[in-house]
Design a protein around this nucleic acid. Structure first.
Lengths: 186, 186
DNA sequence: TCGATACTAGACAGACCTGTCTGGTAACGT
DNA sequence: ACGTTACCAGACAGGTCTGTCTAGTATCGA
């Protein structure tokens, strides 16, 4: 218990929010499992919604760090490795879908800070994909980036609601079909 | 107020669950807005979770009725019209994403009856797409149906979290790319 | 040594949650 | 006429929710 209280709270909240949903997990449970006093929690986070926002922003930061950690190769290989990585994550037994999509489902108001944090993550991911498309000289980077975003969202849903093991082998195929230079095999 | 109490409850629950989320809406509010006594509610639905399941099953039934109402044409046209229809729905100002995906996000346990009702809808939709692919003689109907399912999920997310008006014009393009016989335009 | 900061335990308020219960009204088939 | 069923209003129980508050301990820099 030598890690700072704020970190323990955020780590515990991340685990519970992701596994069980935001509205399904109360502050009392978070502070109990984090081993933190209630006053300490409200010292670091002014409200539960701010904790949720911090959770989303932290997940976004981690995703960006993970993407930065991938050793850059050709734009095409970068794109494929991003989607392959999604398949790896999606195949984990603890996988419960995308934290951003799941959180957004619990915050219907697009103006809510949590939704805005989700929008920031999405803008970053879309930019990542778009940059690779431009770098590889794709003839239609705008539209293709949009469709790859759709593919991304569909994959995180599919890995959660369907069988990720069946989905994983076709990710590369799907990306290549969207990129448009790979005819469908008979 | 001459419609039966059960219908008023289900209609009100559908409206509120979809607009605000399942956990965010309490029984007290549903019965108040439906103009129904609490005992009447619990007479028709043994628990809130059963109401949620009825809501999901009702949405599934409506989707299947809507699909049955589309006048059948060529398999290719059927496929495109299904996805076009999704774009129409997704462009509505009241659109808040897919009720099945949103509900599943609030019920992490795959064994929960609500999740099973969602799974039944998904199996139906996947079968609908697969049938059309087989009918048009597609060389890879299994894998293509899976990817179109991914596309479906990505579209409902994108129409909710991004701008549906930007997404709609590229739906047909995305479907054709997945079907694999349409090269990307320069 | 002093003051600020981080932290702990836990009571408390006020609202909301699901689900049960009592008690009464009205329609309807037999 | 009678029993069943559907429906109403609303109290109630037991729990949980967020957020505030009191009161005290520990650490650490100046």
């Amino acid at each position: 218990m030598k890690t700072p209280a704020r970190d323990r709270v955020l780590d515990t909240a991340t685990r519970l929010f992701y596994a069980e949903g935001v509205h399904a997990v109360g502050i009392d449970r978070i502070i109990a499992e984090a081993g933190v006093a209630k006053a300490t929690f409200y010292h670091h986070f002014p409200s539960k919604d701010e904790l949720v926002r911090a959770y989303i922003q932290d997940q976004s930061r981690r995703a960006q760090n993970a993407a930065a950690g991938l050793r850059p190769s050709t734009p095409r290989a970068n794109l494929l490795s991003v989607f392959d990585y999604m398949g790896e994550i999606g195949g984990s037994p603890a996988y419960r879908g995308c934290p951003f999509v799941n959180a957004a489902a619990e915050y219907p108001d697009p103006a809510h800070p949590v939704r805005q944090a989700v929008a920031e993550y999405r803008a970053w991911f879309r930019g990542l994909v778009h940059t690779q498309l431009v770098a590889e000289g794709h003839p239609d980077p705008e539209r293709t980036a949009d469709i790859l975003m759709v593919l991304r969202d569909g994959l995180v849903i599919g890995c959660d609601l369907d069988d990720a093991r069946e989905l994983r082998p076709l990710i590369r195929d799907a990306v290549l079909r969207v990129l448009g230079d790979q005819p469908v095999a008979g």
